[in-house]
Design a protein around this nucleic acid. Structure first.
Length: 432
RNA sequence: GGUGGGGUUCCCGAGUGGUCAAAGGGAACAGACUGUAAAUCUGUCGGCGAAGCCUUCGGAGGUUCAAAUCCUCCCCCCACCA
């Protein structure tokens, strides 16, 4: 452990706020610390927006501490109102269960759960069997309504038209109880979370103090919005998921490539493990160098989430389409990004059309629908009319254009919508 | 339980019998400009292989030549009262 985890997190921009700094540092310096973050199983996959907490846990582990990822299988049944402008739909128990399983799989890519080096727990274990009366007597009495309604997360909702539901109002108690439980069972003394979790975290700390007269700590991350003011992880084509089946590695890579200039440095610090000394170079970069830096960012981020092989593929596929990019060895020397070009386009999204069906040709707009580049024929025609549709690099000018066997190159059609969206259609019998 | 206000296309939000596929804004998409960036400008923005047609304004019925708009019933949300 050469550098203190707190220093690392701080330097890389993870920390927005923390409770009792001095005591927290002392605790960290005493040796392996235990720390937890909760993940809501509201979707079957985590997305880029959850990456900050995930990376924080990963750093935590790399510094020799023990992270706990807590899947909110129990709390997910309720829904955290923090930062939400409207009541969240209640999810069924079955869905929550499936989602929890998905989260587990994804988290394992970032955090090493082998040999108890990190723990993955589910609060369902202790929440679902709670006795209401006991809970009220033991835990509920420690919470002041007066205090709770002053918490920002509740206040905004109380003022809003939708109001706050009793079920959600209990969320703070349950999350506090989680922390308390982990404190008791795993000696976990730190809880981290997004800045909207501050109220819940502090409530947990308070509960532990009241129950055990012991200190515990909280750290919150800054709310990540891109410099263009968008919420992290949402793009034109929807959410960027960590599940390769929901967001292909190539797309994932592209997401990072499309980072706003102003965000490159910040994102590198947060979403890669590259040393900060190297990241500092961004400040002096201009134009094409910025794009190279984005490639490094995209490569590293993809590698962390999907492995080296997929990252390589995505990188080469991108060079095939957008032009080769040779990244000098001196530029981010720690990065494993390929320094020479090898052409493939394997990792492009691909679909298959039967050769016989294609014999008579197919209207171009239909092809774009089949490829999923557009969602309706009208949209595809619009695309063509606007000059944003290409087959094998040739712009299509006629919305009635029929693609025929003459358009096939190498048994395939490379469709392009707009500047960046590509899809390959292979014509022929299924190769399998 | 009572009273009042609401539910409009991805989101916000106008629209109170035809001129409504529904103003305006946001988001998004395309083009131009670029660096697979940002900003800006222009265009597009329910579906259907053109015309024309079809589906949409919480749900189900009804009035009418014509309904997002009027009537009936139902569902849901909000506020105040209890």
């Amino acid at each position: 452990m050469n550098m203190n985890i707190l220093e690392i997190l701080n330097k890389r921009g993870f920390i927005e706020n923390r409770t009792h700094q001095k005591e927290l540092e002392d605790y960290i310096n005493q040796g392996p610390a235990v720390c937890y973050i909760g993940f809501d199983p509201t979707a079957s996959s985590l997305h880029v927006g959850s990456l900050v907490p995930i990376m924080a846990l990963a750093h935590f582990q790399r510094c020799g501490n023990k992270p706990i990822a807590l899947v909110g299988g129990g709390t997910g049944l309720i829904g955290d109102p923090s930062g939400k402008t409207e009541i969240r739909k209640l999810l069924t128990k079955k869905i929550i269960k499936e989602n929890s399983a998905g989260l587990k799989k994804q988290l394992s890519k970032f955090i090493d759960f082998s040999n108890d080096k990190a723990l993955l727990l589910n609060n369902e274990k202790w929440l679902t069997d709670l006795k209401y009366i006991d809970f009220l007597r033991d835990i509920g009495r420690h919470f002041s309504i007066n205090r709770m309604i002053k918490a920002e997360s509740y206040k905004s909702r109380l003022d809003s038209e939708d109001g706050l539901n009793f079920i959600e109002f209990n969320y703070m108690l349950l999350q506090s109880y989680d922390f308390f439980k982990l404190f008791e069972s795993h000696n976990c003394k730190i809880q981290m979370g997004g800045s909207d979790q501050w109220g819940n975290i502090v409530a947990g700390i308070e509960l532990i103090r009241r129950m055990h007269q012991k200190n515990s700590f909280g750290i919150t991350f800054p709310l990540l919005i891109t410099s263009s003011g968008k919420k992290m992880g949402k793009t034109e084509s929807g959410t960027v998921w960590l599940d390769p089946n929901k967001t292909a590695p190539y797309q994932y890579y592209q997401f990072w490539i499309n980072t706003d200039d102003r965000d490159i440095k910040r994102f590198m610090a947060l979403f890669t493990f590259l040393p900060m000394e190297e990241i500092g170079i961004i400040d002096g970069c201009e134009d094409s160098q910025l794009n190279e830096a984005k490639a490094v960012l995209a490569y590293e981020a993809t590698k962390i989430a999907h492995g080296k092989e997929e990252a390589d593929k995505a990188f080469f596929a991108a060079s095939g389409i957008f032009g080769e990019k040779i990244i000098p060895k001196t530029f981010f020397p720690s990065s494993g990004i390929p320094r020479e070009i090898k052409k493939t386009s394997d990792s492009l999204p691909t679909s298959l059309i039967d050769k016989e069906k294609f014999q008579e040709g197919m209207p171009a707009f239909k092809l774009f629908c089949v490829a999923g580049l557009t969602t309706s024929g009208g949209e595809a025609k619009r695309l063509i009319k606007q000059g944003g549709a290409y087959i094998n690099g040739n712009r299509i000018n006629d919305s009635q254009y029929i693609a025929t066997t003459a358009d096939i190159e190498n048994n395939s059609l490379l469709l392009r919508a707009g500047k960046k969206r590509y899809h390959k259609i292979i014509i022929g019998p299924n190769p399998d």
